[in-house]
Structures are given as structure tokens and as C-alpha cells.
Nucleic acid binder design. Structure first.
Lengths: 236, 236
DNA sequence: ACATGTGAAAGAGTTCACAGCC
DNA sequence: GGCTGTGAACTCTTTCACATGT
């Protein structure tokens, strides 16, 4: 009877992109000792309107307190859960160059949304070496059944011309979400989600904004903040 | 009477984010010898509808040919110009670690939207060394008047706790657009645009999509492609 | 015949504004 | 008094559908 348990509400995409930002701010405020925050301050810190903050937060279930705001601890936890933060999706990385090493050795995976379980490369000088506690292997030689939990996320950090082959290989071993750092548009089977982190596209967008006046105040994953006194900087 | 010269049309933000994708696809098609492409194929490759492609492209001035499509060469060039691609905005990088080295040594700056003119760090072991042909200096010691063209874009690749200070320093030397890789929300003066490249946020978004069914077909900077025969793969 | 360019309709997302609660 | 939560208005985007041009 309760088969469709895993679908509380289906959030609007822009909301999904903003929630991690709210979460990060909530954590920062918590560290500074602010245990509550208003939609007004949160909005100013995140670069969106207070109304948008309230709409976003109410969409994951009302838990603010009228008159005082949201509890930062509660806020952080609720968003964490909503995003499936404690899932620890098994993640693999293909292309162990400078970028991959920077990612592997960074505190990026402290969010525990993803956990690296395998590294791949094709360079014989790299295959067999140990990076961040994991031995680098060959993607083509991989046996999908080797894992208790099959990899769900794949990070692609290879040169553009190799990216499509790698994407195919990842889909073959069962990956269902790809984060690609290559300057290459990827074709994947239906059901696989691809996101791109593309610095050159970011630079082109910034370049456009430099030439044509003001960028907007809110958008995809980014935001533009005005300098103004804010709860975080001047705690009551 | 004609004071507002610098504003040809002001494109919708989602369009600005998609144009670089179209451009990249056009370049790839060009390399493969396809000299024209229809809105239908271009849409399939970019992961958006044909109608959206036509709307986007018509907004930068009609230049398609009815009955046959768009010229890939023309397409690439028009988008390049529209994004201010030949501006070569002077760019500085702060925090010369693994990530910065990966960026500096990558072909990312081949788009010529940005050109690196200075590198900064505070580690005495790094200051004074030469990376990618440029000597690493101290941001705090920098004299803004040293440049003929003052830096317009700043890349921040420092640990989160140092990011705000660096952002302040960048604004001081006149930077008007920042691309931050730090997990830290930045406060900047009005008129400065900030974009974030945040892998941990990307991972959280992917994690959400893994748990709650399908991601959308189009959104901020990303797209989801279905596997289907396409003009690029099967040229006529 | 085929594919663009564009009004008009539909759909999403944001902001307004205020009722309701602390 | 202050701040959340939400219907309603509004704005921005996308999609439809077809007139227009090659």
C-alpha cells in the first residue's frame, strides 16, 4: 500500500539548487553561535529575496517559528535529510590528473552526499599507484559485481576527446549520475543525469556580464550579494 | 539622447547560460565537417527543445536559413561575439594549489574569454615560484596601477576560511567579477558579480536526483540527454 | 518540402501582501 | 512587535502552432 514512499513532494529545480546554499549558511551561523535566523537575513546572505527563502523552506515542510525565525540547527538538518545527504552514494573518479587529485584531497566529501569508492585511469604510469588510499585501476577492466553497492555517481576529469568513451563506460558499470569537468557535451542513455562543471563556460558568462551591465540577483546555482549589515556579521 | 549605447538587447539569463553550449556543439560539428545544423538536432545535442533553440538564436539576431538550418561556422562566431569572447578580460588567480595548477595548465583559456595576468598566494614556499610562465606574488602587496589593463576577473581557489579576505582584496584592486571555488558564500560590494563553482553542491543536487526520480531536461547550466540518433553522429 | 522566426498560449517561478501565530 | 506561511498577482520562460521564406 505504501509503495510510493520515496516521493514526499518533488521540489522545484531552482529550490533544489538553493537548498545547499541555505544549509551552508545555516552551518556557518551555527558555528558563530547564532541559533536562529530570519528569512530576511538568510535571504540577504544567500542573495535571494526573503519571500523566496520562505517559499523554499515552507516547501520542505513548515518548521520556522513565527516571531523569531528558523532554528539554524534544525534548518541544516532538514535540508541535509531532504537532499539525501546521509545516503553516501558510492562514487568513482575517472582521469586521475591534477584536478582529480585536488578533488580527492579536498574536504569536498565532508558533506557525505558522496563517497569515493574507486579511481580509474588509462596511463600505465598512474594505474596501480595509490591516491587518497585507493589504488588506481582501469575502467575497461572493471567488474561491476566487485562492489557490494554498485557505483551510482561518476566524476569525469579526462580530456574532452576521451570524455564520451568514459561516459559510456560509466553507464555500462551502472552509474546513474555523472558530474563532468570535461569541455564536452555527453550523450547518455535515458535515466542517467549529467551535470557539467565547466569553467570556460563560467568565464564566458562572467565576460558577458562584465560587458553588459549588471548580472541578475538570482539564478541557477549562483547569486550576487550586496554589501549590507547582516545578522551573521553583527550578531545581536 | 543616445547615452545607453552599451545595451544591444540584454538577453534572458537562461539564454546566456545556453549560448556557450550551442557554441561548443557548433565547433564540434564544424570539426566533423557538418557545415549546417537544424534547431531540431542542435536541441537534441544540447538537451533542450527545438523551440527553445530557435528562440535563443533568434534573440541574438536572425541568421538561420529557412529550409536548411544554421551555418555552424556562423553560429559559433555570432555566439562568440555576443558573449564578448574576444575581450580577453584580464584575470588573476588567488591560491596556487592543485586546483589552480590544474586550471592554469588546462586548455580552459582557449576560449579567450579570459587571460591570466597574475597569480597570488601567501605561502612563502609558493610566492616567488613560477607557474605557467607567471611569478606568484602576494595579493596584499599588489599595486593595482602596475597593470595597463586592470584585472577584471578573479578566480578564488583558497580554503573556505580565507575566501572572504581574498574577495575583499580582489575588490580592492578593482576586480568586478569573481569565480569562486571555495565552499564559502561571499559578500562583495554592489556592482561585483560572483559565481560559484561548488562541487559539493553539485554532488548534493545529483544525490537528490538519484533519490527522487528523474531530473528535469533543462535547467541552469546543465542538461540531460536522451540517447538517440542525431545529425552529429550520422551525417547525411 | 523543409526549417526558421514569432505571435499567442501555457507553464514556472518569484514577489506581493496580509492573515495568523509567537 | 516581529516573522512565518501562503493565496493571489505578476513576471519570466518555454512551448505551441503556423505564417513566411528558401
Amino acid at each position: 500500500m505504501s509503495a510510493v514512499h520515496r516521493r514526499p513532494k518533488l521540489l522545484p529545480e531552482p529550490t533544489v539548487a538553493r537548498l545547499p546554499i541555505y544549509q551552508r549558511i545555516a552551518e556557518e551561523l551555527l558555528r558563530r553561535g547564532n541559533d536562529t535566523v530570519s528569512s530576511d537575513d538568510l535571504g540577504r546572505l544567500a542573495g535571494v529575496s526573503a519571500a523566496t527563502v520562505r517559499r523554499d523552506l515552507s516547501s520542505i515542510g513548515p518548521f520556522g517559528t513565527r516571531g523569531s525565525g528558523y532554528q539554524t540547527l534544525d534548518l541544516s538538518r532538514r535540508i541535509f535529510e531532504m537532499l539525501g545527504g546521509d545516503t553516501e552514494d558510492p562514487t568513482v573518479v575517472v582521469g586521475i590528473g591534477n584536478l582529480a587529485r585536488a578533488l580527492i584531497n579536498s574536504p569536498l566529501f565532508a558533506t557525505r552526499a558522496a563517497k569515493i569508492v574507486a579511481l580509474y585511469d588509462i596511463d600505465p604510469n598512474v594505474v596501480g599507484t595509490v591516491v587518497g588510499g585507493l589504488e588506481v585501476r582501469r575502467l575497461a577492466d572493471e567488474d561491476p559485481d566487485r562492489f557490494e553497492q554498485p557505483p551510482a555517481i561518476g566524476l569525469i576529469t579526462v580530456p574532452a576527446q576521451a570524455a564520451q568513451d568514459v561516459a559510456d563506460g560509466l553507464c555500462d558499470i551502472g552509474v546513474r549520475a555523472i558530474l563532468s569537468f570535461s569541455q564536452q557535451v555527453l550523450l547518455v542513455p535515458p535515466g542517467v543525469t549529467v551535470r557539467y562543471v565547466d569553467v570556460s563556460i563560467e568565464l564566458q558568462i562572467l565576460s558577458y556580464h562584465l560587458e553588459h551591465g549588471r548580472g541578475p540577483l538570482s539564478g541557477g546555482l549562483w547569486h550576487n550579494l550586496g554589501h549590507s549589515p547582516v545578522g551573521a556579521g553583527t550578531p545581536s
